[in-house]
Amino acid sequence: MKLSNKQKQFLKGLAHPLKPVVQLGGNGLTEGVVAEIDNALSHHELIKVKVPTDDREEKALIMDAIVRETNSVKLQVIGHTLIIYRQSEDCKIQLPK
C-alpha cells in the first residue's frame, strides 16, 4: 500500500496521542509478538510498537521485520517507538485523498 505525504502526515497526527499497544520483551521479536501486533493492527489500523534495545542496527532490523511480517506501512520512528499503519476491511480511519 502506497501512501501520499499528505496521508502520512494525517496519520502521524492521529498517532501522536496514542500509547504503545505492544512492547517487545527480553525475548525480542517472537511469533507470538508478531501475532499480537497483527491482531492489534486488524483492530486499530494505526498503532505504536515499543522496541526497547540500545543497539541501533538491531532495532532497525526488528522494526523492518515487524513491517514486513505484518504487511504494514512504517510511518515514523521516534526513539524506541515505531508507528505503523495497515488498513483493515472495515476502514476505520478515513484517509484524505
Score class of each variant (00 low, 15 high):
M1Y: 07
M1K: 12
M1W: 04
L3C: 07
L3P: 01
N5C: 00
K6F: 11
K8V: 13
K8Q: 07
F10E: 04
L14E: 02
A15F: 05
A15R: 00
A15I: 06
H16P: 01
H16W: 08
P17I: 07
P17N: 05
P17L: 04
L18W: 06
L18N: 06
L18T: 12
P20H: 11
P20N: 02
V21C: 04
V21L: 08
V21D: 04
V22C: 03
L24P: 14
L29W: 10
V34Y: 11
A35K: 15
I37Y: 00
S42A: 10
S42T: 09
H44D: 14
E45V: 06
L46V: 05
L46Y: 02
L46H: 03
D54N: 14
D55K: 09
D55S: 10
E58G: 09
E58L: 13
E58H: 12
K59A: 14
L61C: 09
I62P: 02
I62N: 07
A65P: 01
R68K: 13
E69D: 09
T70M: 07
V73H: 01
K74H: 02
L75N: 02
Q76H: 06
Q76K: 15
V77R: 05
V77W: 00
I78H: 14
G79I: 10
H80F: 04
T81P: 01
T81A: 02
T81R: 06
T81G: 00
T81W: 00
L82Q: 00
L82A: 00
L82D: 00
I83H: 03
Y85K: 05
R86Y: 01
Q87A: 12
S88L: 12
S88F: 01
S88P: 08
E89D: 15
E89K: 13
C91K: 08
C91N: 15
K92S: 07
Q94M: 06
Q94F: 07
P96S: 08
K97A: 09
K97G: 14
